[in-house]
Computed example of a mutant assay.
Amino acid sequence: MLRDVRPWGGEPADVRLKEGKIAAILPTGTTPEAGETVIDGRGRILLPSFADVHVHLDSTRIGLPFRPHTGRPGVWGMMLNDRVNWREAEVPMEERTSGTLARMIAHGTTSARSYAQVDVDARLERLEAVLAAKERHRERATVEVIAFPQAGLLREEGSFELLEEAMRSGADVVGGIDPCQLDRDPARHLDLVFGLAERYDAPIDIHLHEPDQLARFSAELIVERTRALGMTGRVTISHGYGLAELPREQLLPLVEQFAELDIAWATIAPAKPLPTLLLAEHGIRVGLGEDGQRDYWSPYGNADMLDRTWQLAFTNGFRRDEDIEHCMAIATVGGRSVLGTSPALQGSLDRPGVSVGDRADLQLIAGETVTSAVMDRLPDRTVVFGGVVVADALELVGPA
């Protein structure tokens, strides 16, 4: 029993958890059942736990000494910088991925979708490290792994074969990236990605860093293939911020097609924000992620999705409580909807995830209101996964 908690910052209640789900929401002071463990909520806010749906666990330097940024502009230049440096880190890759996932869980994330870079340099080494972290923390979090062709599929011989080998080796999702700008053959790139997804009955997640009209062209090709291959509900566009730069008369038809085909969107709250409220209006599944974690691409990222929720609100220019709470809904249940484990948010005022019957993946956070919790980001947090406490006060609970 979670005693004296406030679901979505509302009235205090006692919440009973059974068999990994919320079994009852009761008046405060309810007598515990025989043998029932009681967690004192102390009036904290009860929320769904975070879902980070865009994280690169295999690029992390969380917990390692800070190093100056050495990357060059552009995806290819940044990828080459990463390739030069990633093996030289102070600790082995498996320790890095597992340590960062542990820190994410301690801060409230119990669902994640992580990329694992697969290319002719790393081969499957980075994938194996992410799979090991997933296995190590399987009692604390659910992790999907994306076989990700960071270097493209057409620029280096053998890239596609390695991507298929990654799917055979345990990856859950087929990744793609910048069909026009990186591989410069969008039809071929997308044919390979969608063909592999069809072969392994897997969802798709495509990085789209491309600018406005180029992003629009790639998105139109993605829509065409999603419709033709019956992939409704199984495709996610990550980033896609170039689409947000389109005039409304060009963006709106795309958004309507995303809604028709249930194409999801994963964002990292970039400086140029997505049209967040427009996407909510059309029922687009939107999730949030931290991207890299103080890695060879960027010094940003600290494994705390509460910080990234603040960033989502800030970059959108939100001030009203209902809009900032919507950012929290995106960071929690919105992300789960991208993963297919929760329904899509029903508009910007939907606050699901803490009702009877919901899975007991939860967090208690300190704050007067949800908005104040996002602003203050206090360390007084308790994290529950499947009805079991897995972290408290930013530290894991239970066996290492």
Rank of each mutant, 00 (worst) to 15 (best):
residue 1 M to A: 08
residue 7 P to C: 15
residue 8 W to P: 03
residue 9 G to A: 15
residue 9 G to E: 01
residue 12 P to R: 15
residue 15 V to E: 03
residue 17 L to T: 05
residue 20 G to Q: 06
residue 22 I to F: 09
residue 22 I to P: 06
residue 23 A to L: 11
residue 26 L to C: 11
residue 28 T to E: 13
residue 30 T to Y: 07
residue 34 A to F: 08
residue 36 E to I: 03
residue 37 T to D: 15
residue 46 L to P: 13
residue 48 P to R: 10
residue 48 P to G: 01
residue 49 S to K: 10
residue 55 V to R: 04
residue 60 T to W: 00
residue 62 I to H: 06
residue 63 G to I: 08
residue 69 H to W: 03
residue 70 T to K: 10
residue 70 T to I: 09
residue 74 G to H: 12
residue 76 W to P: 09
residue 78 M to S: 09
residue 79 M to L: 12
residue 86 W to Y: 15
residue 92 P to C: 14
residue 101 L to V: 09
residue 102 A to V: 04
residue 108 G to D: 13
residue 110 T to N: 10
residue 115 Y to Q: 12
residue 125 E to L: 11
residue 137 H to N: 12
residue 140 R to W: 11
residue 141 A to N: 12
residue 142 T to A: 15
residue 142 T to W: 04
residue 144 E to A: 11
residue 156 E to R: 09
residue 156 E to I: 08
residue 156 E to A: 14
residue 159 S to Q: 10
residue 166 A to L: 13
residue 170 G to A: 10
residue 172 D to V: 15
residue 175 G to E: 13
residue 177 I to G: 11
residue 180 C to T: 12
residue 181 Q to I: 13
residue 185 D to R: 14
residue 189 H to C: 13
residue 199 R to A: 15
residue 203 P to D: 05
residue 205 D to L: 06
residue 207 H to A: 13
residue 208 L to F: 01
residue 211 P to E: 01
residue 212 D to Y: 00
residue 212 D to R: 06
residue 216 R to D: 00
residue 223 V to Y: 00
residue 224 E to I: 05
residue 225 R to D: 00
residue 226 T to G: 07
residue 228 A to I: 10
residue 238 S to G: 13
residue 241 Y to V: 07
residue 247 P to H: 02
residue 248 R to G: 02
residue 249 E to H: 04
residue 249 E to M: 07
residue 250 Q to H: 07
residue 251 L to F: 00
residue 252 L to Y: 00
residue 253 P to G: 04
residue 254 L to I: 00
residue 261 L to D: 01
residue 263 I to Q: 00
residue 265 W to Y: 05
residue 267 T to F: 07
residue 268 I to V: 12
residue 269 A to K: 04
residue 270 P to C: 12
residue 270 P to A: 09
residue 271 A to N: 12
residue 273 P to H: 06
residue 279 L to E: 02
residue 280 A to F: 02
residue 282 H to G: 03
residue 284 I to G: 00
residue 290 E to D: 05
residue 294 R to V: 13
residue 294 R to F: 13
residue 300 Y to K: 12
residue 301 G to S: 07
residue 302 N to T: 05
residue 302 N to P: 10
residue 304 D to H: 07
residue 305 M to E: 02
residue 314 F to W: 13
residue 316 N to W: 01
residue 320 R to G: 14
residue 320 R to T: 13
residue 321 D to Q: 11
residue 323 D to Y: 06
residue 328 M to P: 08
residue 329 A to Q: 14
residue 329 A to S: 14
residue 330 I to A: 10
residue 332 T to R: 02
residue 337 S to N: 02
residue 342 S to A: 15
residue 344 A to I: 01
residue 347 G to W: 05
residue 352 P to G: 06
residue 357 G to W: 03
residue 359 R to G: 03
residue 360 A to S: 04
residue 362 L to T: 13
residue 368 E to Q: 14
residue 374 V to S: 08
residue 378 L to Y: 03
residue 384 V to A: 14
residue 384 V to Y: 02
residue 396 L to G: 05
residue 396 L to I: 03
residue 398 G to Y: 06
